[in-house]
């Protein structure tokens, strides 16, 4: 039979199209991704390279153009400029306040709302509502509520005989106010992620544990919490990165004040770059932010790998 096959003539050359099917698929694929890819090059990769270069230049209102100065800006930020460490300290306080509070509240709400009961939809809808609201609108309303004199919060406190502070005018209170209002705004998102994770845990585990006489707390600490670990990790990193990016909320509520008490990294970049036009220095700050976010992401990936093993 093999002989017959090889005796038959084929007409390969006359039928070959100008593109093979394989080459054609490749071309089509690049056509599909090209809008995305070109945009990526112009608005992301190009600017990312540029910001690396800017960070190595002296470029401000006085110079009006970029002069290469090597790592001078980094030296300035890390070693000389007291503002920088102040900002870092603020950002860290902000993150340390926001992340645990946000996560603890999100998990508590999720545990309460992961099983159907009368009113569950109402509560989920309520706790999630601030997430879809503009941060500016949210900050406007809270700034209004938190005014020193005549602000609603202080008027309520006055009813029980407490003289409330001038929340947004005293550095410590301002930071606390910004953190708490931000938690209220964003906790719904983490709550939803936790609910999804909780609902993905098979009921069998809990039922088996209950048959063995485990208490509610034992079931949570020995079954639910360990099974939530991957979700907790993701939420922790996302929330931490998110806390370093907070800008609009602080812009509207405190403008970085008082006495730079709420001046965090993202706001500092904006201030240096677009208010004071210190392009070189602002780019250096952007690079530092980039490194922090990357480091957090790498930590997350590594922890997740470790968790899988």
């Amino acid at each position: 039979m093999t002989d017959i096959i090889h005796n038959l003539k084929t007409t390969r050359t006359s039928q070959k199209p100008w593109l093979t099917l394989k080459a054609r698929e490749m071309m089509e694929a690049w056509l599909f991704v090209s809008p995305s890819f070109i945009g990526f090059l112009i608005f992301f990769l190009g600017p990312l390279c540029a910001v690396v270069y800017y960070s190595l230049t002296e470029w401000n209102l006085l110079t009006q153009q970029a002069t290469f100065v090597g790592l001078r800006n980094f030296e300035n930020a890390l070693l000389e400029n007291p503002d920088f460490w102040h900002v870092v300290r603020n950002s860290v306080i902000f993150a340390l306040g926001l992340v645990p509070l946000n996560m603890a509240l999100a998990l508590t709400l999720a545990l309460a709302l992961s099983r159907p009961f009368f009113g569950v939809v109402f509560f989920r809808t309520v706790f999630f509502a601030p997430v879809i609201t503009s941060a500016i609108a949210w900050a406007i309303v809270w700034k209004f509520l938190l005014q020193g004199e005549g602000g609603f919060i202080n008027q309520v406190l006055a009813l029980v005989g407490i003289t409330g502070p001038n929340w947004l005018r005293e550095p410590g209170w301002a930071m606390a106010a910004v953190i708490i209002t931000r938690v209220i705004k964003m906790v719904g998102l983490n709550m939803i992620l936790y609910i999804a994770a909780l609902q993905a845990i098979p009921r069998d585990y809990e039922e088996a544990a209950r048959l063995e006489g485990a208490s509610r707390w034992q079931i949570f600490s020995m079954i639910t919490w360990p099974l939530l670990a991957p979700t907790t990790l993701v939420i922790m990193v996302i929330t931490t990165i998110g806390s370093f990016k907070v800008f609009d909320h602080i812009y509207q509520m405190t403008g970085g004040g008082p006495e730079n008490g709420t001046l965090v990294l993202a706001f500092y970049i904006y201030q240096q770059g677009f208010k004071f036009f210190n392009v070189g220095y602002a780019s250096t700050l952007a690079m530092i932010m980039f490194v922090i976010v990357m480091a957090l992401t790498i930590v997350q990936v590594m922890l997740r790998r470790k968790g899988m093993e």
Partner: peptide, 8 residues
């Protein structure tokens, strides 16, 4: 009687 390697 058609070679179809590169035919859709």
């Amino acid at each position: 009687d058609r070679l179809v390697n590169e035919v859709q």
